[in-house]
Design a protein around this nucleic acid. Structure first.
Length: 763
RNA sequence: GCGGGAUUAGCUCAGUUGGUAGAGCAGCUCAUUUACACUGAGAAGGUCGGGGGUUCAAGUCCCUCAUCCCGCACCA
């Protein structure tokens, strides 16, 4: 027996060497598994793309949980003989990374992006990204993830740039990508547009004001947008305003003097809200913009890109909207334009002219800036436009049929080719698609894929020609679009841009891995990412991007709170891995969580699994000592008791295999844990002690029956080797280490073969 | 407003088609030169959130209420 079993299991001494051994074997690469004869060339493929972590810093416990779940699936399928590919990578995360670096630069040098210029800022961001990348890949190694490093990708590397440009150009030519003046979410802090999904709603207490607007009383929470309001809108069925007709002009006194207002009747108005009358500001409200579009009304910008009032605000021009608000109300009060309680009661509204009001304001996810809707010339993906899908493998969508992106996204899941776990998220997914608007993909930041479009401009700066392509056309006067693409545009291509697309030869080599088998990610990015990948894959390949979506939850602290710096409850995966061993961390991250549920983590939990790793270690020591000298090359005749043990083991393995196949990794892990500790170690090993060693020294020696002894030796060795294999996906380090120390006996003759490519136990 | 989830032992959670309530941790009692104290054995602990219904039988199915959590939509 190997001397190292004389000491307790020491993960710190073991893990680095084990990972190195795996990596040097090349067996994380399925091609190498085939070359070395561990995988049949015609084996069923199993593929996962790693959700690429943002290069914004370091990995947190949530990333660790993702790595563990995926590694369990991948190791399980690899051991089952599948042609298993797990592609790693990182995400440039455009806004997130740039704003992080801008923050650092501002803190250290008090400089903003325009002080540095595009080139210098990109240099700094790239340097930061490179450093983050190195940290991240080391952390991925530390967690034991068996990813194929030879295929590592980055959302902003040359190959992905080619994919992004190819994708953009094709969508542009199909008219799916268009440029237009539409209302978008402007982040005044980040100085960029963001998509609807990048908005976070924050509850805010404010005032709701009732102003006299000619013969009407209008309600608003945003007096500062009201300067340009010249349309007054009400429901056509509202009896209170039956005397007014659509299109009627009314002269009235407003903030900065007399204006002419037009009455608009529109069914979108909620009669029960406020007075049932509102004025609209199409330039700064999505809802108002829609009304204006329906009735072909004009609009005027009131607020500029930094949140200051424009000249239309008259005396208030140049003021920040937050400062101007109360002053505007003061002015309206002086002019007697704030509605009285009596006037409101007449309209059936029980309120004051100024009422307390709680509403949600939109803020930018990354910068926290308060979103100001603006009408701007931006690039969009049209989700409703019909196009011909030439080749389709999607259920319910025939090749050559006319479809929209929305319809494709629905068909992927409705047709059952993509299944979301847990099921309830399919409903969430559908409701998102039903509310989906065109996706604004242009960003006014510098870090990211630059839009592959060039313009020719005349002397006044008006664009006279547009060209979409990888390089500017011949001629010197072409200027590239200043904007970059939403980071999710490039990550939407991830399932196939990592497999060689659009390079025909390269993609053909990997074609078998797409659709990928499983996408494992957090439920918080189902819209950002999962839906966008479905969009891109169905559009470009006519097939779904993945068969199963496994959504994991958030990792929370022992009390169920989110982990945050301010609460000081962060568990750093590297720290606890060093302290308790990665295997212990892995088990604590998988047991007690199913798809879609949050996981509560604590150091106590990790400590418990550290003990388990050592328990396995000690049990191995005992088994190896007990079988020393025994010839186990052939299965001996087993006693009835041992037959029963083997039968029970087979049942456990069958059950665990079933749980693994059903994505119930938490149950599989728990059952193995329980079986190993409380059945194998506590009962079976204890029972066989007497038969193998003749009883404890303190007890009366029992006569040893050689037949029963050999049967017991074979049985405990068989159970140990079997359970070690089954535990490998969960605890790869300690099991691989034990495996390397097992003598090559019986059917386990292995000649230095790694446990990671052993066959999963068959029943 | 729309939708979803949770509520089971002190704590964290299992409980798959309805068939006598389970595990881990903590606590309690006992054991002890033992493969392993990073241990073992044992006992205790639950009217399964409340109420109603279906059924021979409900933690599980239906209705209802309560509390907590989450997502989406937002109203000017």
């Amino acid at each position: 027996m190997n001397d190292k079993f004389l000491k307790p299991y020491n993960p710190q001494e073991t893990e680095g060497a084990i990972y190195k051994k795996w990596e040097e074997s090349g067996l994380f690469n399925p091609d190498e598994c085939i070359a070395q004869g561990y995988t049949q060339p015609d084996a069923e493929p199993f593929s996962i793309v790693l959700p690429p972590p943002n290069v914004t810093g370091t990995l947190h416990i949530g990333h660790a949980s993702m790595l563990v779940i995926e590694d369990i699936m991948v190791r399980f399928e690899r051991m089952r003989g599948k042609r298993t590919l797990w592609v790693p990578g990182t995400d440039h995360a455009a806004i997130a990374t740039q704003s992080k670096v801008e923050g650092i630069i501002y803190k250290e040098e008090k400089k903003r992006r325009h002080d540095l210029g595009r080139e210098e800022l990109l240099k700094r961001v790239n340097a930061f990204a490179a450093e983050s990348h190195d940290t991240i890949v080391n952390q991925v190694r530390k967690m034991g993830a068996s990813v194929d490093w030879s295929r590592e990708a980055f959302t902003l590397d040359a190959k992905r740039e080619k994919a992004v440009n190819t994708a953009f150009k094709q969508m542009y030519e199909d008219g799916i990508i268009y440029r237009g003046n539409r209302i978008i979410n402007w982040d005044p802090k980040g100085q960029t547009t963001i998509s609807d999904d990048e908005i976070v709603y924050v509850e805010e207490k404010g005032k709701f004001y009732y102003f006299k607007y000619g013969p009407f009383i209008i309600g608003t929470a945003r007096p500062e947008t009201k300067f340009g309001d010249k349309y007054v809108v009400m429901h056509p069925d509202d009896k209170r305003y039956a005397d007014y007709t659509h299109g009627q002009k009314i002269e009235l006194e407003w903030i900065n003097g007399p204006i002419s207002a037009t009455v608009i009747k529109d069914e979108s108005i909620d009669m029960a809200f406020g007075t049932g009358v509102m004025t609209i500001t199409p330039a700064h409200s999505v809802v108002d913009f829609d009304i204006a579009q329906r009735h072909k009304l004009d609009s005027e910008q009131i607020i500029d890109k930094v949140g200051k009032l424009l000249p239309i605000a008259g005396e208030f021009a140049g003021q920040k909207i937050t400062d101007a608000r109360s002053k505007i109300v003061d002015k309206l009060r002086e002019k007697g334009l704030i509605a009285s309680k009596e006037e409101l009661v007449k309209l059936g509204v029980d309120a004051e002219g100024e009422a307390d009001y709680v509403h949600n304001i939109s803020t930018a996810e990354r910068t926290g800036g308060v979103i100001e809707p603006q009408i701007m010339n931006q690039w969009f993906i049209d989700v409703n436009k019909k196009f011909i899908l030439k080749e389709s493998k999607i259920n319910g969508v025939a090749s050559g049929s006319e479809v929209s992106l929305k319809e494709l996204m629905i068909a992927a899941v409705e047709g059952g080719q993509t299944h979301i776990l847990p099921d309830r998220f399919e409903k969430v997914y559908f409701s998102w698609i039903n509310n989906l608007r065109d996706w604004c993909i242009s960003r006014q930041i510098w870090y990211g894929h630059r839009i592959p479009v060039w313009y020719k401009k005349d002397a006044e700066g008006n664009e006279t020609e547009t060209y979409c392509g990888f390089k500017a056309p011949a001629g010197s006067d072409w200027v590239q679009d200043e904007d970059t693409l939403d980071t999710w545009f490039s990550s939407g291509l991830w399932t196939f841009s990592t497999l060689g697309w659009p390079d025909k030869e390269e993609f053909a080599k990997h074609r078998m891995y797409h659709p990928t088998s499983v996408l494992e990610t957090g439920y918080d990015i189902i819209f950002f990412w999962v839906a966008r990948m479905v969009l891109m894959s169905t559009y470009f390949l006519g097939e779904v991007p993945f068969k199963t979506v496994y959504l994991h939850g958030l990792v929370r602290d022992a009390q169920g709170r989110k982990m945050s710096k301010s609460l000081g409850n962060i568990i750093d995966p590297l720290t606890v891995s060093e302290k308790y061993g990665t295997d212990a961390v892995r088990l604590s991250l998988i047991i007690g969580t199913g798809p879609g549920n949050d996981l509560k983590m604590s150091e106590d939990k990790i400590r418990g699994y550290k003990n388990f790793a050592n328990k396995i270690w000690n049990a191995t020591r005992f088994v190896l000592t007990s079988v020393e000298g025994a010839n186990l090359t052939t299965k001996p005749a087993l006693t009835a008791t041992d037959e029963a043990y083997v039968k029970e083991l087979d049942e456990v393995i069958a059950d665990v295999t079933k749980e693994m196949e059903n994505f119930h990794f938490y149950l599989a892990g728990e059952k193995l844990y329980h079986y190993f500790w409380h059945t194998f170690a506590d009962k079976i090993i204890e029972e066989t002690k007497g038969r193998i060693g003749g009883g404890k020294p303190s007890e009366t020696p029992v006569e040893i029956d050689p037949v029963s002894k050999l049967s017991a030796q074979w049985t405990i060795y068989h159970i140990l080797t079997t359970v070690i294999k089954a535990l490998h996906p969960f605890m790869p380090f300690v099991t691989e280490e034990i495996w390397s120390a097992m003598p090559g006996v019986g059917s386990e003759e292995k000649g230095g073969k790694l446990l990671m490519v052993e066959k999963w136990p068959k029943v």
